[in-house]
């Protein structure tokens, strides 16, 4: 039972990732249909015993991890690393600091 519950959770997790990556119309993508079909096929029921259930569950967990980590990594990449070098002001703001503000200029401008 515990395995079943977690399989359901993994399945939902994967479908959620597909939805957030694809947007609307995600239900028609082949990967959505394939994942659902695999989970249905490997279900343990009274009539059917699946020896490879743990193996496919492990693969499903890996796939969920792949999709989620890729999304989160890409988000951080776009936020921090994709825009080239930061200006001193932006770099300071990242760690919660501000560049000093000198009213009379810094002295080296002409």
């Amino acid at each position: 039972m515990a395995a079943m519950c977690s399989a359901l959770r993994v399945c939902r997790g994967i479908l959620k990732e597909i939805r957030s990556a694809k947007g609307s119309g995600y239900r028609h993508s082949p990967v959505y249909q394939y994942v659902l079909q695999q989970f249905r096929k490997n279900q343990v029921t009274g009539a059917q015993l699946c020896r490879a259930q743990m193996e496919s569950l492990h693969a499903a967990v890996s796939y969920r991890c792949l999709l989620a980590s890729t999304r989160l990594h890409q988000r951080l990449h776009l936020q921090y690393h994709a825009r080239g070098e930061h200006t001193p002001q932006q770099a300071a703001a990242l760690v919660g600091l501000r560049m000093p503000n000198q009213p009379g200029g810094k002295g080296w401008e002409t």
Partner: peptide, 14 residues
């Protein structure tokens, strides 16, 4: 530090 530790971790996980 999000942009180093988390960044590396998610990349490694993926």
């Amino acid at each position: 530090v999000e942009w180093v530790h988390d960044y590396d971790m998610y990349e490694l996980r993926a």
